[in-house]
Design a protein around this nucleic acid. Structure first.
Lengths: 153, 153
DNA sequence: CTAGAAGTTAGAGCGCGCTCTAAGTCAAGC
DNA sequence: GCTTGACTTAGAGCGCGCTCTAACTTCTAG
């Protein structure tokens, strides 16, 4: 185990800032880290692993309050394993629902983008076949959209 | 078009609060809504469609600032269609990356949950086969975990 | 006509997750 | 010994996205 990473090095590796790492420790998300002479923090490999786990919880939008609860359980030893598992299972359920919601919304966005693209196509063919007046009203453009769209297939 | 939905009815249907609906209108996310005599808002079907679109942007974590930009472009008419499409495409790219990150983190959680479950199994079989001392040290439990796990297949 | 419910506004307040400041300590290099 | 620079702490501040308050008006039912 390399127990010799400075806070800046950990910041660089995790993408967190040194400020945030100290903040996480202060609020109990990270257990007190070992110190070098002079009081500087020295992170062990196990600290890194825990931080990476925290980042996965963060990526999946677990609120800090729950992470604190989880961290506290972890600090209480093996007899909390079952409780921790239940927390993770509940969270995972939320996460999967969340992913599905995002997936569906992403699909809607894709449809909208496709609609916009078709609309732009109709604008383009209009300006090629018409007099090229770019500033005609939306209504008239939209009215012609269907025709030109039909023309293009 | 039914242009007769009260703010409470819209709140009920969208899951937003009346407060939030007014807030969205105030900050320009929603264009000024039609009013009944007495000044009460009456939402049209087109307002509902737009709100539902906003909710999809929100579900996919688009910040309000960008939604405002998008709403402004929309208000500027058809000539902003291409810009709007580009915004949505950029956003969709972010969203897909986000979904993938969540998916991967969710997978890690699943692995961790499986690990916890195996650990709990080992605890259970220990208390069945041993003297039933629940308060032995984590180290000894973990040492026996592999053996009992191997025994179970 | 009156009571009560439901709406209106401008603006203050809040919870979250950092983010930064100020003042100080410490180790290393000149 | 002194400077430089990286670190330390407690605590203030901030941006986001709402959320709520206070004071007021209007509509509906009895």
């Amino acid at each position: 185990m390399e127990s010799h990473l400075s806070i800046d090095e950990v910041a660089r590796r995790t993408g967190l800032t040194a400020h945030t790492l100290r903040y996480y420790e202060r609020i109990g998300l990270i257990a007190p880290v070992a110190r070098a002479a002079g009081g500087q923090r020295r992170y062990a490999a196990s600290d890194m692993a825990w931080i990476e786990f925290l980042l996965r919880l963060r990526t999946t939008h677990m609120p800090i309050g729950k992470m604190q609860t989880f961290a506290k359980l972890r600090g209480a030893g093996d007899r909390t394993v079952s409780e921790r598992r239940q927390m993770l299972e509940a969270h995972l359920t939320d996460v999967l629902a969340n992913i599905e919601a995002m997936r569906q919304s992403a699909e809607s966005l894709r449809v909208k983008i496709a609609y916009y693209r078709a609309f732009e196509q109709s604008l383009a063919s209009n300006s090629n076949t018409d007099e090229g007046d770019v500033h005609e009203t939306p209504k008239s453009l939209r009215a012609r959209t269907r025709k030109t769209a039909r023309n293009r297939r």
